[in-house]
């Protein structure tokens, strides 16, 4: 658990306890090498933002952490347990890691409440009443109580994404992965989703976000990682990355963002 072999490119001295640690993670799709040796460590309660242009590997990285994509080489540890070894029970790993997708991926044939209670009931084996209680509490907390019996196709994008976040939280994950969760939303719906993330960060949730919302990354991140060509090219505090990037590629990327009026 404690970072005895903490020689990872985290830029921090002696990590207390890494919630997530990636070592030399490689992933290819056919001939396309998307991740080319990712090293990354995320401490508990840390909020790490992954930035970089499309195709830099942000989403693939998150999908690999959740074992939705098998990696080709390297190792991934979650809370001290290696999850990429042979004979790992992928279902029990995923139980501890929540992920929220860009496209919400709610189950369209279930009500909001059923969407949220499905995993607690089927995976954790909670009795229906207990699962309902736990999930209704979450829905109330995130302003979705009056939507519990609605079907997803009746909700706005922002509401759907908040339900997706609640669905992930209902499993009480130790690590939450957020894959460009505001990219599919209308601009006026982005803030309601970001508010939820803000609240989670304040509550100490360990999170890794792939995001294009630079302003939000600057505000919320404990650390920002710039991915380029399947590598973590540069990382540091938001102030350092956004104000004083060291790498030429980072500067180019941020200049394009500024030019587009996104920062």
């Amino acid at each position: 658990m404690s970072g005895t072999d903490g020689v990872v490119a985290s830029g921090r001295a002696a990590a207390p306890a890494d919630a997530l640690r990636l070592e030399g993670v490689h992933k290819s799709f056919g001939r396309l090498e998307v991740l080319r040796g990712i090293d990354l460590a995320v401490a508990e309660h840390e909020v790490v933002c992954l930035i970089g242009s499309s195709g830099s590997g942000k989403s693939t990285l998150l999908r690999c952490v959740n074992l939705l994509e098998p990696i080709d080489a390297g190792r991934i540890h979650v809370l001290g347990t290696e999850i990429t070894g042979r004979g790992v029970d992928v279902d029990s790993v995923r139980r501890r890691i929540g992920i929220v997708f860009q496209s919400f991926n709610l189950f369209p044939h279930m009500t909001v409440l059923r969407n949220v209670t499905l995993a607690p009931r089927k995976v954790l084996g909670l009795p229906a009443a207990e699962a309902d209680a736990r999930c209704e509490e979450l829905l109330v907390r995130f302003g979705l109580a009056d939507k519990r019996d609605w079907f997803p196709d009746r909700l706005s994008g922002g509401q759907q994404q908040r339900v997706a976040i609640v669905r992930a939280l209902a499993m009480q994950p130790e690590l939450l992965l957020l894959d460009e969760i505001t990219s599919a939303l209308d601009p006026e719906l982005v803030s309601e989703v970001l508010d939820v993330i803000r609240e989670l960060a304040a509550g100490g949730m360990t999170m890794v976000l792939a995001t294009h919302e630079m302003g939000f990354a600057r505000e919320i991140a404990s650390r920002v990682c710039f991915l380029d060509g399947g590598l973590v090219l540069e990382q540091g505090s938001p102030a350092q990355i956004f104000a004083d990037p060291q790498e030429e590629r980072t500067r180019q990327f941020l200049k394009r963002i500024v030019d587009a009026g996104r920062l």
Binding site: N66, L68, V90, D91, S92, R94, R95, I97, G98, I99, F101, S103, N105, L106, F107, L118, A119, K122, V123, R167, A168, M171
Partner: peptide, 16 residues
Amino acid sequence: PSQDAAARSLGLSRSQ
């Protein structure tokens, strides 16, 4: 496939 991915990511088994 994103539906299956969402279900599996919550810890549901393949058959669930």
